[in-house]
Design a protein around this nucleic acid. Structure first.
Length: 340
DNA sequence: AATATCCGCAACCGCTCCGAC
DNA sequence: CGTCGGAGCGGTTGCGGATAT
């Protein structure tokens, strides 16, 4: 159960704001400032809920807001940040002056998500669709597979599947986009892109869909381009990518610390920690790795942990799962010190 | 020209967080 | 230390304009 409503909704106006209401709101704020939002509608002479006033102000009336379209630079930043921290729209919006979390969220849902799907990128995991499908195919024999899918819903899956089953030219085009995207988002690059991109057989399995992730021979030029632009060593460390952006890295560290403290607090309060050692039967600590796509897909922050007492560790588990993926892909990382 | 469908955006809802008391 | 309530967040809904049939 949530909190009771902040006001009696039957007595307040809802829906679109009129120019008169906007004018009252602007006049009040310019004269008195914001203060307590629950008092603003009364003082401003508006028959609105305080929450509605706050939303109208923050999402539309604020004088520092941009109302024009998103630039390619903003677009790229949103994609990169979404890939790094997930759907934390308010954090992403902080990096985009004049944009609100609502703006960014809407733009993502209506434009960027579709755009990535057309490029052959799963907008949830930021991985090539073929990779996600391959992973899905691998886990399809396990129970409750729908909980392990990184796709938002079946519609997305069908959309993606129909996309990758288009013509060879489309596939090649899609691959080209994938490579370009992966250069932009190196933390999501799969091993074969760096070291084995030209070898379609190396990444092929019994799944035809998996084969689609390999570049057509005629597109080897994209591969060489990737090798030039991509990080110089094959043992790419995704955390280094996060560190490239001080803001993202700062937010990441804060979130990491915050989540860690919550987990430790939760575990210690429920007696699951003895001498600082976590119990070994954590459902998300298995080495299977097949159910980890959702973890990465939800911005490392939404690992399903239903029915388990350590439900607060989703973020850390997501990070650890992602780390396991990288380590599995790049065994040489095992020699490196990499503690969270 | 009329109707149906699609799409984008503004607004709402439910929930968590956190400070005040 | 527990409760209350305001602020803020992410997800979802629904309206209205644009486009297709």
């Amino acid at each position: 159960m949530g909190r009771p409503p902040c006001c009696d909704k039957s007595n307040v106006k809802r829906g679109l704001w009129t120019p008169e209401e906007d004018a009252k709101m602007l006049a009040y704020v310019s004269n008195h400032g914001i203060g307590n939002w629950t008092l603003v509608p009364k003082k401003a002479g508006l028959n609105r809920c305080g929450k509605s006033c706050r939303l109208r102000w923050t999402n539309y009336l604020r004088p520092d807001l941009k109302h024009d379209g998103f630039t390619p630079q903003e677009e790229e930043l949103i994609i990169n940040l979404h890939g790094a921290i997930g759907s934390r729209w308010s954090l992403i919006a902080k990096r985009l002056p004049g944009r609100t979390d609502n703006d960014v969220k809407n733009y993502w849902n209506t434009k960027l998500r579709k755009k990535l799907m057309k490029m052959g990128i799963d907008p949830v995991t930021h991985k090539p669709v073929s990779q996600v499908l391959s992973d899905y195919g691998t886990v399809s024999g396990l129970p409750s597979t729908e909980n392990q899918m990184s796709f938002v819903n079946k519609e997305d899956l069908m959309s993606n599947m129909s996309m990758v089953e288009h013509t060879e030219e489309d596939q090649a085009h899609s691959w080209e986009h994938q490579v370009q995207y992966q250069v932009m988002n190196p933390e999501n690059v799969q091993p074969h892109v760096f070291s084995e991109a030209a070898s379609s057989s190396s990444s092929s399995s019994s799944s035809n869909l998996t084969q689609l992730c390999s570049p057509p021979q005629s597109y080897s030029c994209q591969t060489s381009q990737t090798q030039i632009i991509a990080p110089p060593c094959s043992s790419f460390d995704w955390s280094e990518f996060l560190q490239c952006d001080p803001f993202v890295w700062s937010e990441f560290q804060q979130l990491q610390q915050c989540e860690l403290e919550k987990v430790m607090s939760s575990l210690s309060s429920t007696g699951q920690i003895e001498n600082g050692v976590e119990p070994s039967n954590n459902v998300n600590s298995n080495s299977n790795g097949q159910d980890k796509q959702g973890a990465a897909g939800e911005g490392y922050g939404a690992v399903a942990c239903e029915g388990h007492s350590s439900s607060g560790n989703s973020f850390v588990d997501g990070i650890l799962d992602r780390d396991s993926e990288i380590r599995a892909a790049f065994p040489e990382l095992l020699d490196a010190s990499f503690d969270y």
